[in-house]
Computed example of a mutant assay.
Amino acid sequence: MNLATSSTGPVRATMDDVARHSGVSLKSVSRVINGEPHVSATLRAKVEAAIAELKYVPDAAARSLAGSRTFIIGLLLDNPSPNYTMKVQKGVYDAVRAHQYHLRIDNVDSSVPDDEFSAQLEALVRNSRCDGFVLTPPLSDNLLLLDFLDQSGIRYVRIAPALEKSRGSGIVIDDAAAAAAMARHLWDLGHRRYAIMRGPTAHMAAARRRDGFIEELKRLGLEHPVIEIDAGFSFEGGIRAGDSLLASGLRPTAIFAGNDDSAAGVMAACSKAGLKVPDDISVCGFDDSWIARSVWPYLTTVYQPIEEMGHAAASLLLRRDEPESALHRLDFHLVVRDSTAPPPQA
């Protein structure tokens, strides 16, 4: 179908054009565009095909006035890892853009006192005018934030929730099982002396990884205690934790870090101490972010589908027929590279 051309250029397609081209009513087109529930797959496919062919772009202002919505989705972050935030941002952005919405990204500091955090939230909601929020860890488990959004009547979807899992929709992987898989990999290589670099205390997924790793080693029959050091989720935290561990005189043969950033920092600390990875000590991480292939040797890690989790969370938020307590689980897998090997002989 060709649209008419005026003296100033091609005429912009309208909802009427989409309705005529797809052979459905104007109301049906509106329901598809606005993401309303109970729209059949056949109807949605017809309308979306017409939208694509006509290159129709919805008028955001008109949609907002008609439905009392702003067509803006907010992404809330409080994570020190740039690798994680870049991936989750891309996933959320792709989903939001596909639904003709706009994305607003905000960083909030949940470590401040409650009254200060509440003031941040009030200012955020007042200024952002978002139709809903995608919450990333550790904000996914911040009960003050969840209470605030519930009381304000604002919809949200949580990524990697650990507390009150039935509270709202969420996207998760099995962090404990993923860390257990890494423990089995190191055990099968022959390691029996381990250290773990713990993530932030407010990050519940980090706690699940720690527990899954240690419990699996106990199940396999480990006799020595696992050395535990706080590293956070940053490269600098990994260096500090690695320096502390190696200066203590304790020498594990394998180190599991809570994410790739801190694992890369641990590798830097090993290099400073004159240790070769993996000849002298094995190091592994979690996430499979770009930094896992930016260090040498390449990092053995757990692939967490961060981008897919962001996309799925935003898609859930935009689907109005989704049960409020739906929890969706995505898959992980182990990525074995060059930073792990059998332990050196005594």
Rank of each mutant, 00 (worst) to 15 (best):
A180F: 07
A181P: 00
A181S: 15
A181H: 03
M182P: 05
M182F: 02
M182L: 14
A183H: 00
R184A: 08
R184K: 10
R184D: 14
R184T: 14
H185D: 10
H185T: 08
H185N: 00
L186G: 06
L186A: 12
W187T: 02
W187M: 03
W187R: 09
W187N: 06
D188V: 06
D188N: 13
L189S: 07
L189P: 04
L189I: 03
L189W: 01
G190H: 04
R192W: 01
Y194G: 02
Y194D: 00
Y194F: 15
I196S: 12
I196Q: 10
I196E: 12
M197W: 03
M197F: 15
R198H: 06
G199V: 09
G199D: 11
G199F: 08
A202Q: 12
H203E: 08
M204Y: 12
M204L: 14
M204G: 00
M204I: 11
A205R: 01
A205N: 04
A205S: 13
A206I: 00
A206N: 08
R208N: 13
R209E: 07
R210K: 13
R210Q: 14
D211I: 10
D211M: 08
G212E: 02
G212F: 12
G212V: 05
F213S: 04
I214E: 09
I214G: 02
E215F: 01
E215A: 14
E215S: 14
E216G: 04
K218R: 15
K218C: 11
K218N: 14
K218L: 12
R219P: 02
R219V: 11
R219L: 13
R219T: 14
L220W: 07
L220H: 02
G221Q: 05
L222Y: 05
E223F: 01
E223A: 13
E223C: 04
E223N: 08
H224W: 06
H224P: 00
P225S: 12
P225H: 11
P225V: 05
P225M: 04
V226L: 07
V226R: 00
V226W: 11
I227T: 12
I227A: 12
I227C: 08
I229Y: 11
D230Y: 07
D230V: 09
A231G: 15
A231E: 01
A231F: 07
A231N: 04
G232E: 05
G232W: 09
G232D: 09
